[in-house]
């Protein structure tokens, strides 16, 4: 059976990370490895994470790693977790989000049925609570976000990880690169991610977010031009 590694990048997510890790630990398809990459938190995020794992893991003890690093950004944190992981299939969950209990199982089934390299799914935005029964803000929507993405490791081996120089949009840039490299992507029609909307969401509070997105798009277009010219 293919092994599944889940990576949780986190920067000051202590207020929410218990929900996130609990939703991973209670997946109907038990994951094979969980890696927290604490990206320079100053709020004790890793301690909260460890406490939850200590309480829950006694039941079946999936291997858990906690990696601490100075703050380098989400892309670098995802890459660090990727480098430390051993699974055949990789998933990511941001520290302020959560998964339905069958999130991994549904995506694995879809991946097996379609032969896809990358599977995404449906996102529900939530204001305060994430989890079963949490009310959504607006309609559920298909979403290609880090938290909906389950990826065969072979794709990372082929095209590399996330661009650590991008302050935001690193997942979009990576997905565009994967698509250009011929990775087969599919979207399953099932609720996969509860995305928590809160005042501390990384990009909502940054006025230069649009400029960062434009820089990411410029980089993607330049890469494509260089590739087609080669």
């Amino acid at each position: 059976m293919e092994r599944v590694s889940i990576i949780l990048p986190c920067h000051n997510g202590a207020a929410f990370i218990a929900d996130a890790i609990t939703s991973v630990l209670h997946q109907s398809r038990v994951v094979d490895e969980i890696i927290l990459v604490d990206d320079g938190s100053s709020d004790g995020s890793a301690d909260v994470f460890a406490d939850v794992c200590a309480d829950v893991c006694a039941a079946y003890a999936p291997p858990v790693q906690i990696i601490r690093q100075s703050r380098q950004g989400a892309g670098a944190a995802r890459n660090r977790g990727l480098a430390a992981s051993s699974g055949d299939i990789i998933g990511f969950l941001d520290a302020d989000d959560g998964w339905p209990l069958d999130s991994v199982a549904v995506r694995l089934d879809h991946m097996a049925a379609t032969g896809a390299d990358i599977v995404f799914g449906i996102v529900r935005q939530c204001r305060h609570l994430v989890g079963e029964g949490a009310p959504g803000i607006g309609p559920d929507m298909a979403g290609r976000l880090a938290g909906t993405m389950l990826v065969r490791r072979a794709i990372f081996d082929r095209i590399g990880g996330f661009d650590p120089k991008l302050p935001s949009g690193e997942v979009i840039e990576w997905v565009a690169r994967a698509a250009d490299a011929g990775a087969v992507m599919t979207d399953c029609d099932a609720l996969i991610l509860y995305r928590r909307v809160h005042g501390g969401n990384m990009m909502l509070q940054r006025p230069d977010a649009s400029g960062e997105a434009l820089a990411m798009l410029r980089q993607t277009l330049a890469r494509r031009r260089a590739s087609s010219a080669a």
């Binding site: 935005q125 979009i172 977010a209």
Partner: peptide, 25 residues
């Protein structure tokens, strides 16, 4: 004109989000 990343750009949290959700149909 490039529309290949539309789904992700619309869902990316660079968008302002309020009680009305995002993006609005």
């Amino acid at each position: 004109i490039h529309s290949d990343l539309a789904d992700m750009l619309l869902l990316d949290p660079v968008h302002d989000v309020d009680e009305g959700g995002w993006p609005q149909p």
